Lab assay of single mutants.
Amino acid sequence: TETRTFTDEREARRFEQEARDNGKDVQVRESNGKFEVRVK
């Protein structure tokens, strides 16, 4: 599991989409204006 934290939602979404395109299981959590993207 890899976790990346972004402050920019667009960057978080781009990373999320890229991971999904690669067939990964992705979860995005938002807290305090930060976006935590977990990739399995």
Rank of each mutant, 00 (worst) to 15 (best):
K34M: 14
E9L: 09
S31K: 13
Q17E: 07
R20G: 03
T3L: 12
E2Y: 15
G33Q: 03
E36R: 03
T5F: 15
V26Q: 01
V26Y: 02
R14L: 12
E2A: 07
D8Y: 04
V26P: 05
E9M: 07
D25L: 12
F6R: 00
V39C: 08
V37Q: 01
G23M: 04
N22P: 02
A12M: 07
T3C: 15
A19P: 00
A19D: 01
F15N: 02
D8Q: 04
T7E: 12
V26H: 00
E16P: 00
S31N: 12
Q17S: 08
R13H: 07
E30K: 10
R38V: 15
N32S: 07
K24N: 09
V28W: 13
K24Q: 10
K34T: 13
V37F: 00
R38F: 14
N22S: 13
D25N: 09
E30W: 13
T1Y: 15
R38C: 14
R20A: 04
G23Y: 06
G33L: 02
A12P: 00
A19E: 08
R29A: 10
Q17V: 06
V37H: 01
K40V: 13
T1G: 12
R4T: 08
D8R: 02
F6D: 03
R14H: 08
R14V: 10
E30H: 10
N22F: 08
F35D: 01
G33C: 00
D21H: 09
D8I: 04
R20E: 03
R10W: 13
E36Q: 07
E18Y: 10
A19S: 09
E36K: 03
V37T: 00
A12V: 03
A19K: 05
K40R: 12
T5D: 05
D8L: 04
D21L: 13
V26R: 00
K34A: 09
T7L: 10
T7I: 10
E36S: 04
K24I: 08
D8K: 03
V37S: 00
T7H: 09
R20Y: 05
R4L: 10
Q27S: 13
F15E: 02
E36I: 15
Q27F: 14
R29E: 09
F6Q: 02
R10G: 13
R20H: 05
R13E: 04
E11R: 03
K40Q: 13
R10F: 12
F15L: 03
G23I: 01
D8V: 04
R13L: 09
D21R: 14
Q17W: 06
E11M: 06
R14Q: 12
V26E: 00
E18I: 11
E9K: 06
E30G: 06
G33S: 04
F35H: 03
K40S: 15
Q17I: 06
R38Y: 14
F35N: 00
E9I: 10
R29Q: 11
E2D: 09
R13D: 03
N32G: 09
V39D: 03
F6L: 00
R4H: 14
R13N: 05
N22H: 10
F15P: 01
D25F: 12
T7K: 07
D21E: 12
N32A: 07
K34P: 01
T3K: 06
S31D: 10
D21T: 09
E36F: 11
S31H: 14
K34V: 15
N22K: 13
T7G: 07
T7M: 10
E16L: 07
G33N: 05
R38T: 15
G33T: 00
R29V: 15
F6S: 01
N32D: 11
R14W: 07
F6Y: 06
D25I: 13
F35A: 00
K34G: 08
K34Q: 12
V26N: 00
V37C: 05
G23H: 06
T1D: 14
F6A: 02
T7D: 13
R14G: 05
N32V: 04
R38S: 14
F15A: 05
R13F: 06
Q17P: 00
E9T: 02
D25R: 08
K40G: 12
N32C: 08
R29W: 14
R20S: 04
R4E: 04
S31F: 15
V37R: 00
S31W: 14
F35K: 01
A12L: 04
K24Y: 15
R13P: 01
E18M: 10
R4A: 06
G33W: 00
V37A: 02
R10M: 12
E2L: 12
E2M: 11
G33F: 01
R10H: 11
V39G: 02
A19Q: 14
R4D: 02
E9H: 06
E2P: 06
T3A: 06
N32T: 03
R10S: 13
R38I: 15
T3E: 06
T3P: 04
R38L: 15
R14F: 07
T3D: 05
K24V: 07
E2F: 13
Q27M: 12
A19N: 08
T1Q: 10
G33D: 04
V26T: 07
R20W: 05
V39R: 02
K40I: 14
F6M: 00
A12I: 00
V28P: 00
V28H: 02
K34D: 05
R14P: 01
F15T: 02
N22E: 12
N22C: 12
R14C: 02
E18L: 11
V28Y: 11
K40P: 06
E11V: 05
E18H: 09
F15W: 09
V39F: 07
R38W: 14
F15D: 02
E2V: 13
F6T: 01
K40N: 14
T5S: 08
S31R: 13
S31P: 02
